[in-house]
Design a protein around this nucleic acid. Structure first.
Lengths: 146, 146
DNA sequence: CCGAAATGCTTGAGCTTGGCAACTTTCGCC
DNA sequence: GGCGAAAGTTGCCAAGCTCAAGCATTTCGG
């Protein structure tokens, strides 16, 4: 009988604690998404969809569904909403008439740019770190994810 | 000139890049919640509710609503679901008969413990960092959030 | 002390999401 | 040519979330 169950909290290593601290940042993230989406007249899923699209590279509906990890039928309504606001258009693919490409309009591109700007705003907790800490944080995360 | 203009990522400071990298970790987190909730026969909101409760400190419905940042009427259904599974019970408060306290049952406590265990699992990207990097990450985040 | 306002929770209506199944159109392959 | 597979849409259903209304209870003001 080695590890007791209570080790979950007692035996907390450095990386576990770091992950828990990140969880606090994540908690703030969701309300922010809702707020930002509202400011742009979008719902959060519509925001994610628009964010997932590349203005320079139209993709089929199914590719968008895969990117959002949801069902095809779900994307239909999502794109309906974006199209109603003139942010994207559906264009039939040349080589396969079953496929509909989701194309970001010029207006959609502008909204998307402002969106990305707001979403990449750094939470104040991180922004108030010293320059050295900020670089250290980036470097560690680069090694983890880069 | 060093930074060539890259549409979204130009002129990015260290902390902005760090924040963007964290975003990738957060992206993985949502599907994980859905999966874990499913494994425990819960829906994600029910999972958050159970996680927000303290087995040693029953709270009124309204306090739970405040913790979850949602409407009172919403937690009614949430607690209904948890109660139907025997994870919590409603108990009237002594001093005010309008108030209903949400009490975590013994079974709920067990589920909650296993839940917390799974949810605090560190993503492999972080787990594979060197011990020094893990400590550095923790220390920086402590300074930011502690 | 009594009536009115306020509080805590529940219910109902309305909207949105998200998944599954069925259907249409189109494609690829034998 | 015909048949199975794929892309997208639609319909249906479960669930979350918010607002407005309702009910029981408490608290406040005169």
């Amino acid at each position: 009988m080695l590890g007791e169950m209570e080790t979950t909290v007692m035996r907390q290593g450095a990386v576990e604690e770091a992950w828990a601290l990140m969880g606090r940042l994540f908690g703030q993230l969701r309300p922010r998404m809702v707020r930002v989406a509202g400011e742009f007249g979008l719902t959060p899923p519509q925001l994610f969809a628009l964010k997932a699209l590349d203005p320079d590279d139209p993709v089929p509906m199914s590719a968008l569904a895969a990117a959002l990890r949801c069902d095809n039928s779900n994307v239909t309504g999502l794109v309906d909403g974006l199209e109603a606001q003139g942010l994207v258009v559906r264009r039939p693919a040349e080589h396969d008439r079953r496929v509909r490409m989701v194309v970001v309009t010029e207006r959609g591109e502008r909204v998307r740019a402002r969106l990305a700007e707001v979403m990449q705003e750094v939470p104040p907790e991180l922004a108030s770190l010293s320059a050295a800490d900020q670089r250290a944080l980036r470097d560690v995360l680069r090694r983890a994810l880069g």
